[in-house]
């Protein structure tokens, strides 16, 4: 622990902590709405597309996350468009977009052998290399996401429970679904720097599913998910520094441990 406190004085660790907390809390809050709307795997899908985006960015010599933002936004629009305007269900639409993303990434990796090392560093992320600009971007975008969720909280709640009913209340359900996916795409892109494209969906799914085990009300689920995300990032980073383990994987495994505990508590308390 002393080692962690000592290392906490380093700017790169402070940046990792701050950006990690902001992004993980964002992922967790959005995750509650996505899990309840059965869009849990959208993070996975968008992350896979991001893999191709990173490859494309490296090949074209553009900062990869710029390309990833554009690709992720386009993909989220495509997923929603396919599931709303055709016979393709949401999960299948995510699967289609996701596999094209992975295939595109692999093709780009095989073509551009020179940047393979960089590309694979995005697969598992590296929170400790987050720069100043990225930290500011993470804070700013996270605040925007949280503000939108705060302003549309009730609309997002009813949309998650019953979309058709939400429409009869005069809520612009299609527009709101798009807003939710745009926010998710932005958050996923930010999450890639923490845990990488392979694990970013865990930041969306785990805190939400864990909080759902302990739920007593919708408001408390959101709050619990945010707290779980915060604890997992702080503890995960702490463990990774002390034990010299990869930060992203440590955060994910802590989330898993949290889920197992919550699941056990639910079984014991609620029977």
């Amino acid at each position: 622990m002393t080692k962690f406190l000592e290392i906490l004085h380093f700017e790169f660790v402070q940046r990792a902590l701050i950006s990690g907390i902001f992004i993980a809390v964002c992922c967790a809050v959005l995750g509650v709405f996505l899990v309840l709307r059965r869009y849990s795997l959208i993070g996975d899908g968008l992350a896979h597309v991001s893999f191709a985006g990173v490859g494309l960015g490296l090949m074209l010599g553009i900062y990869p996350l710029y390309v990833v933002v554009v690709l992720a936004l386009l993909s989220s629009w495509l997923i929603l468009h396919l599931s709303e305007n055709s016979e393709i269900h949401g999960d299948a639409a995510i699967g289609l977009v996701s596999s094209v993303g992975v295939a595109g990434g692999v093709l780009l990796a095989s073509v551009g052998e020179g940047f393979n090392v960089d590309l694979f560093s995005y697969l598992f992320g590296d929170i400790l290399t987050v720069g100043k600009a990225e930290t500011y971007a993470a804070i700013l975008l996270s605040l925007i996401v949280m503000m939108v969720v705060y302003l549309f909280y009730h609309e997002l709640f009813v949309l998650s429970y019953d979309e058709e009913y939400a429409h009869t209340l005069g809520i612009q359900t299609k527009r709101l679904s798009r807003v939710l996916l745009i926010l998710t795409a932005i958050t996923v892109v930010l999450g890639i720097r923490i845990v990488g494209t392979m694990l970013v969906s865990s930041l969306i799914i785990f805190p939400a599913v864990t909080a759902l085990q302990l739920a007593e009300s919708f408001g408390k689920v959101i709050l619990t998910a945010a707290i779980i995300a915060l604890i997992s990032v702080v503890l995960g980073l702490c463990i990774s520094i002390i034990a010299d383990l990869p930060a992203g994987a440590s955060i994910v495994m802590l989330n898993f441990a949290g889920f197992v505990i919550a699941f056990g508590i639910k079984r014991i308390v609620k029977g």
Binding site: E155, F157, L169, V221
Partner: peptide, 13 residues
């Protein structure tokens, strides 16, 4: 994960 109060309050939106 919503209470009855939360669900009924939706009708006021």
């Amino acid at each position: 994960p919503a209470t009855v109060r939360e669900i009924v309050a939706c009708g006021l939106l």
